[in-house]
Amino acid sequence: MDDTLPTTLIVNGERVTRNVAARQHLSDFLRDELGLTGSHTACEHGVCGACTVRVDGAIVRGCLMLAVQANGRKVDTIEGLSDSGEIADLQEAFHRRNALQCGFCTPGMLMAAQDLLTSQPEATREEVREHLSGNLCRCTGYQAIVDAVEDVLGSRRRGRK
């Protein structure tokens, strides 16, 4: 039988405690135990980025972190970022630019984009493309995503001035 460990996390600001199988990765934990199905699993070997979430403020691959490793840490998912309004401008830009089609990569893509927006506010178009290179989108061809991120880079820069 699976070895389970009591695990407590702060997920989207809410404390949750579960007995978690050691082998369960964070994405499955969020999806199956908490019903937070916004983070997707599409490869489970760390390549596609669809499972990207934030742990203690840094983006990570949800499929490459065990839920038990996240014990005691703060996890933010797309649902949390949506409800807090933190990425409302980014979501709006994605919507306006049609920077998503099937939407399966979108939560992870938004996580990666928000990470860039906060860590490299002066990023160039090329740097946007580089930063998003860990997230596979099979639908858009990326250009609309890059355009949307550039829009928000610009609007946030203007907002700060």
Binding site: G49, A58, L64, S133
Partner: peptide
């Protein structure tokens, strides 16, 4: 090395 999400961990 890989991408941002992997470099973080």
């Amino acid at each position: 090395v890989a991408c941002a999400a992997i470099r973080n961990v």
